[in-house]
Computed example of a mutant assay.
Amino acid sequence: MISFPNAKINLGLFITEKRADGFHNLQSCFYPIGWSDALELIPAEPFAFSSSGLPIPGETATNLCVRAYELLKKDFALPSIQMHLHKIVPIGAGLGGGSADAAFALKLINEQFALGLSVAQLQDYARRLGSDCAFFIQNKPVYCVEKGDVFEEIGVDLSGYSILLIYPNLAISTAEAYANIRPTKPQRPLRDYLQQPIKTWRQTVRNDFEDSLFPNYPVLPKIKQQLYELGAVYASMSGSGSTVYGIFDAPPVISNQFEDYNVWQGKL
C-alpha cells in the first residue's frame, strides 16, 4: 500500500503569546499543496524502515513514521511491517513534510489493518507526534490556533491560483526561528484578514518569523521580492522557514534566477 504525503504552506502566522508549557500560541491558516513524498507500507518480517531521495537525519528509531507505527502498536496487535519513504519535500523548510509523513503513516496503518480509527482518534494520535501532524489527517485548509493543533473551519479557497515555492537549501531549526520572536497580540485576528480579497494580503497577512529571520538570512527577503517582481499576488515565507512561496493568477515564467535552489510549481 502506498500514499503520497503532501506538504502545506502557512497563510499568515501570528505568534500571539508564550505559553506556560514553553510553547507559543499562534494563529495561522494551513493550506495543503501538491509537493509530496512517497510512503509505502507492506506487512513483512522483520520490521524495517528504509528511505531514499533526500537524506533524513537522525536514527531510524526517532523517525516520525517509525514512531507512528510504535504508537499504534501500543494499543493494537499490529503485525510486523516494512516501510519505505522516498523523501522529496525538503527538511527544515517550513512545509511540514515530516509531520505529513507521520500522519500518512497513521492513516496507512489504519487502512491496511482495518483498525477502524475515526478522524478524531487519528488526530489524537497525530498530536502526540507533533503539533503539525494532526492537520494532515483531514488534509484540508483550516484555521489553526493554540499550538497550531486546534483547528477551526475557514472559508479560504485558492482554487485556480498557481503557486511557486523556492527552498534556498537552507534548513532553519524551530529553536532558531523562535529565538528572537516577540509574541504580540494582533489588533485583529488573522482570520479577519484572510477573509478579505487576496490582493489585500500583502499589507495585512504577515509571517512573524520573517521579522526574526530575514535580517540573518538576506537571501529570504531577496527571494520574496523576486516573487513579487514575477507578478505574485501574495508572497510569504512558510512556517518557520526557509521556503518562500508566491501565489500567482497564472503560472509564472521563470528563467535561471532560482537555478541553485529547490523549486516546485503547481496549482492550488
Rank of each mutant, 00 (worst) to 15 (best):
F14D: 13
A105W: 03
E59D: 13
K185R: 13
G58C: 07
P46H: 09
I154T: 07
W201L: 00
I172C: 13
A61C: 02
Q112P: 02
T243K: 00
Q112H: 11
P43Q: 06
V89I: 15
P55E: 13
L129I: 10
S36R: 15
L11F: 13
S80A: 11
Q27H: 02
M237Y: 02
Y245P: 08
G266A: 05
I9R: 05
G53M: 08
P5Q: 01
I2T: 12
A114Q: 12
Q138R: 10
C133Y: 06
L72P: 03
K199G: 01
G34D: 15
F23C: 06
A102W: 00
K140P: 01
D192A: 14
E152W: 05
Y261K: 04
N110T: 08
V205S: 11
S131Q: 00
S3R: 15
E40I: 10
G53W: 05
P55I: 10
V244G: 04
S52T: 15
R19K: 12
L122P: 06
P197Y: 13
T184K: 15
S28K: 00
G231M: 10
G22L: 00
C133L: 04
S242F: 03
A20N: 10
S173L: 07
Q187N: 14
N6M: 04
C133A: 14
Q257F: 03
E152Y: 13
S52Y: 00
I166A: 05
Y245N: 07
F151Q: 11
C144D: 06
A38P: 00
I172F: 08
P5L: 01
F248P: 12
L13C: 06
P90S: 05
I181V: 15
P79Y: 12
I91R: 05
H24Q: 09
V233N: 01
G239T: 08
Q82E: 11
I247M: 11
A126D: 10
I33A: 09
S3I: 01
V253S: 11
K199E: 14
R182Q: 15
W264T: 11
T16Y: 01
N110R: 06
F47K: 07
Q138P: 03
R188H: 14
L268N: 03
L220M: 05
A177D: 07
P79M: 04
F136M: 07
A103R: 08
P183M: 00
L39K: 02
F30I: 05
S240N: 11
Y178L: 09
Q123S: 08
W264H: 13
F14I: 02
Q196A: 14
S240W: 02
P215S: 04
L26P: 05
L85W: 07
L54Y: 07
N180H: 14
P189W: 00
P215L: 00
R128F: 01
Y228R: 06
L230K: 15
P189S: 13
L71E: 12
V205D: 09
I247T: 04
F248Q: 10
C29G: 03
D21V: 04
F23T: 07
S240C: 08
L72T: 09
E152Q: 15
A105N: 02
A100I: 02
G148E: 10
R191N: 06
E210P: 06
L54F: 12
L71N: 04
A175H: 11
W201C: 03
K222H: 13
Y178M: 13
I42D: 10
Y143R: 01
L26A: 07
P168A: 12
Y178D: 12
